[in-house]
Every structure is written in structure tokens, then in C-alpha cells.
Design a protein around this nucleic acid. Structure first.
Lengths: 316, 316
DNA sequence: TTGTACGCGTTATCAC
DNA sequence: GTGATAACGCGTACAA
């Protein structure tokens, strides 16, 4: 293994000059800098991140915490995770996956990325001694990254109406969470802008529940309506019901989902959906937490990432 | 931060005694051991894994390499990854995610878990200086963990015939990979055992391709047949075609998928499928690579994990 | 600007 | 069986 000392010998300087050339190049004269760099490339030197971590009292580990009790199998998190991995790559940071809330405090890390946090989890975070960033809006003043949900349903609704659907109905998820409120709000505002009366139904986030809902309500919904759904799961259920009821998609009715992860593509026909930029958000989370660590915990603010409408087979 | 020295002072022994009490307790007299343990719990001491890693010339990092150019969004890998994370938890190991083949050599790790490897990748692995384990059967003599594919289609076929279907047809994936051969073999052997003539169709691993296949072939397939599919994707396509052709499921025809990750549950009706124990395999991969690291690279052998048949709505 | 000495927390080695 | 010492590779404090 090539060490700092080896490079120092090769370049005929002290270890410290090499160290400085790496970490504070502005403190080294250009001539020596060149010498050191030549030696480093010649020997193919790579800093030992463990030794570096030891002196800096770091671990080079970020904990990726998934608190939601949902099936972590959700492809959603996979995307996020790969985004995080990408953001961490350059700094030779590694990830520890945590699904059990009791495990958060076990072992060490330089920082945390936390997903699926609920209000009642907040006390736990107050005890964390290392910086953390949330994925998903929080009511507290924590740093977070989230999708601009309001914007998402807003562009979906507008698109539907522009494409010639006469009405838009919202199929929401029956939970009291910020993301759902935001998605409903985006729909509401867009409807009111056009002086249309909003209509919102809610049910559990399962395709068969949405299917049942449509079965029951289809008589109250006039043709040439577009369903704006709060998730792709719901959208798939809506499609299934419509198809069974012999309604033509996308002529008689339109369907727009939300999420754009995996499900939208395996459905038949493929869903028009509001696609969250999950990979990108993962990348951002990584960069923000690294920055926060560097700045020993200073706030990084709250970031909303705009989703994009992906038009496929379920809308005109 | 509580260190080894703090514990040593508290217990009135040397640092080495504390270190030994942790790593080689059999070399310490019971009396001192008790003293040390009392001190450790009193001070709530936790070993610094970074310092430990430095002296041992370790990184405490495992690289999780995904070579397959498929969409890494596949829920499949998420399960595997969480399994790996679970297996790594106790040893305070962290994961680095690698999707770019050029990144394998970048940075350090103590070992590799490699998924999606093909023959033409093998030369790369020969250059790796740290131990590695594959997920997925390999033709070379590498260590690996994989599903017992042959067993999987075998129990599926037998179950179908026992439940009263008169025939079983195999819908395979059109690739030249070991897993496909094994799945076909399991079906073949089970058919021959019962003196039934095997029938195999193959197509790309997409639901709509399977759907098309059934459309074309349905006339050649007599009722009361069960379709043994090489993937849930294919199975979903088969279901869709049957439903469109007004065949009754599971009365007229049966369908059994393979994989049991996510897709089987979002389909309608829910699939009877051969469920791979992916989480468990991830856990095993982690334990094997840790063991291999401890033993400085000695072979860990080849492990087949039996899948299990999950009976749901698409079979009698 | 550059170099020296020391410390980070742990473990292996070798005395006793 | 136990303890003193050195070493892992790097960075900070201080001296030159």
C-alpha cells in the first residue's frame, strides 16, 4: 500500500507537504505542488480514508433510515438509495441501511438521511448528535428535500383540461399527511382557476380499493372526465375498473397517476403520470448531508424538486 | 467519546487487558474480565470501529456491485440489498453501491458482493484483490448464492398437476442463461416423471410479449392446463390474455409465476408464484463475505436457496 | 512556506 | 495472564 510517506520520499519533501498538497494546496508553492502531484500519479497514491477518518473523528458512514412501516420493497426507495449512493460516491462515503428505529443510535455515523418520518418520531431526532436531513416534508423546521407535490397535480390537472377533458376528478389517498394535502391543493387550485367545481374522493392506497371506488361512483361521473390520482397504485385500479366497465381509455375517460416509479410501466396501458425525480432527490440528499457535515451542522434549508408529467397511454 | 483508555482507568487495568477482554476474552482471567465488563457498561463504552479498521488494515466497507444493465429500480435488488444490510449490521460494516463497472476498482473495500455478472465480466474479477461472492450461479468455480431454480419450477409443476390440471405448459424467457435452463429443467423433469409431454414456449421477459404469445397459441392449448411461467412478468401477461379471451381463472386455466417480488401482489388477481427468498439470500451473502474476509479469502462454496410456492388466486 | 513531533483509538508483539 | 511499546496512515500545532 502506497502511503503519504512513500509519496514524500519520492518527491523529496516531508509528509506534511504532501498532506497539504492534498488538503490545502494553496498553502504550498506551485513548484512543490507539481513535484508532489507527479509523485502521487507515479506511485498511484490514494489517500487512506480510514486513517483520515480516524484523525478527523469521522466514520465516513451515512445512515439511510427508513422509518415507514410500509414494505421497504417499494421500488421508490431503491431509486432514492441509488441517488444517494451516487451523491456519496466522490467522497468515499458508505451507507448503512437502517429500518429498525431502535438501530438508529446503534453504532456510529457522520450523518443521517431519514425517510418516512412521522410527527411522533420527532423526539428521537432531537437526541441525534450528528446532522440529519429528511426526505419528505416535515412540519418542524428541519432540513428536507421533497417533491413539489402541489406543482405536480397542478400540471396534471391543467394538462388534462387542455387536452379536452371536460372535467377532472381527484382520487386521493385517505391519509393525513402533508404530501396528500399538497397534491389535493394543486388540483383544487387548478380547478378553481378555471371555475370548475372540484370533486375529491379518497380511499386507501391500493389498486383494488380504487377499483371498487370507481365501480361505486362511475354513475356520478360524466364521460370525458380525467381522473387525477394521488398515486400510480390508485391510477392502476381506476384503469382496471374502467376497462372492466367497457369504458374507452383514453377517449371516454383519462387517468393520470403520481409517482412514476416502476408501476406506471408495468401497467397496461402504460400510465400517464406525474413522475417524481427520485434519483435526483437522492443525489441532492447526499450532497446536502455531506455539506452539512462539513459545516458542522448548519442548516441546509428546505428543497422542493419539481416532478414532470410523463404522457403515455391513459390520456388523450 | 469514551475510549479504551477510559475503560482501562476505570477498571484499573491496562488498555491491552480491555482490548483482550473484547477480542480474546479467553485470554483474560474471569476476575479481570468481570471488572472490565463492569467498567464498560458503566461508561457505556463502544469500540471505535474506525480505529479498529485502521490497525487491521480494513475499511469496514463492502461494495455491492450491480452489473446487469437492467433497470436497477427492480424491487428485486431492493430486497437483496436490505438482506445484505441486515447481514452486515452486527459487524458495523457499511455498503457502497456500485453500478458502473469502472467504479469497482475505485476506492477501497474489504470485499465485494456482485450481482448480474456475465461470462465476459470474469476477467475483471480476476484482478480484484479482495474477496468477492456472486449472487447468481456462475459457470466458473466462484463462490455464489442463488435460488434453486430447478426445485422451484419442479414444485410448481407438481402442484399444478396435483391440483387437477390435466396438463402444464412452460412459458420461458428467451435468454441463454443458467437460471432459465434450470427453470426449464425443473419443469421438464416433473413432466417426464408423470409421463406427460412437456411443451415449452419462449419469449422476451415482458408482460405484453407473453400476452401476445398466448393470443397466438391459445388454440393449441387445451383447457384445464396450467401455465408454469419463468417470471411473474410473463405470468401477468398470460393472465391478461386469458382474461381478455374470457377464460376463467383458475377454473379453465391456471397460472404460476416465478420471483414473488412485488409484481405478484399488484397483479389482479394476485399470482400464485414461486417466491424466491431474496432477503434471506442477501443476508447469506453478507455473512459469507464477512466470513471470507475473516478467513482471508478462503472459498465459501456454492449455496442454493430453495424458493417456496405461494398459492394465491391464479390456481385451483 | 516547510518540517518536526505528537496524537487520533485500537491491536500485535514481546517482554515479564 | 498481564502490561509496556510500537505501529496503522494521516492531520494539527507548533517551531523553524
Amino acid at each position: 500500500m502506497v502511503t503519504l510517506s512513500d509519496v514524500a520520499k519520492e518527491a523529496n519533501v516531508s509528509k506534511m507537504t504532501v498532506s497539504r498538497a492534498i488538503n490545502h494546496p494553496e498553502q504550498v508553492t506551485p513548484e512543490l505542488l507539481a513535484l508532489v502531484e507527479k509523485a502521487m500519479t507515479k506511485l498511484d497514491y490514494h489517500p487512506n480514508s480510514v486513517a483520515r477518518a480516524l484523525v478527523n473523528n469521522r466514520t465516513n458512514v451515512i445512515k439511510f433510515v427508513t422509518l415507514e412501516d410500509i414494505d421497504t420493497t417499494e421500488p421508490y426507495y431503491m431509486n432514492l438509495l441509488f441517488g444517494v449512493a451516487r451523491g456519496l460516491k466522490a467522497d468515499s462515503y458508505a451507507i448503512q441501511l437502517v429500518t429498525d428505529i431502535d438501530q438508529i443510535q446503534k453504532g456510529n455515523a457522520d450523518g443521517y438521511i431519514i425517510t418516512g418520518a412521522r410527527e411522533y418520531n420527532y423526539p428521537i431526532f432531537d437526541e441525534l448528535k450528528k446532522p440529519f436531513i429528511f426526505f419528505g416534508e416535515t412540519s418542524s423546521n428541519f432540513d428536507f428535500v421533497d417533491t413539489d407535490n402541489r406543482y405536480g397535480t397542478s400540471i396534471a390537472t391543467k394538462y388534462a383540461l387542455e387536452r379536452g377533458y371536460q372535467d377532472a376528478v381527484f382520487i386521493g389517498i385517505d391519509v393525513k399527511e402533508g404530501f396528500e394535502y399538497a397534491r389535493e391543493y394543486g388540483y383544487l387550485a387548478s380547478m378553481q382557476e378555471r371555475n370548475l367545481e372540484p370533486k375529491i374522493f379518497r380511499t386507501g392506497n391500493h389498486s383494488h380499493l380504487a377499483e371498487k371506488l370507481i365501480d361505486e361512483q362511475i354513475e356520478n361521473i360524466k364521460p370525458n372526465t380525467c381522473f387525477i390520482c394521488a398515486s400510480d397504485r390508485l391510477a392502476i385500479g381506476v384503469c382496471r375498473a374502467l376497462s372492466r366497465l367497457n369504458k374507452k381509455l383514453p377517449e371516454d375517460y383519462g387517468v393520470i397517476g403520481f409517482d412514476g416509479v416502476f408501476l406506471d410501466q408495468v401497467s397496461n396501458p402504460q400510465l400517464t403520470t406525474v413522475k417524481q425525480q427520485i434519483f435526483k432527490m437522492g443525489d441532492m440528499l447526499a450532497q446536502l448531508i455531506l455539506e452539512k457535515i462539513k459545516q458542522s451542522g448548519s442548516a441546509q434549508g428546505q428543497t422542493y424538486v419539481k416532478p414532470e408529467l410523463v404522457v403515455r397511454g391513459t390520456t388523450k
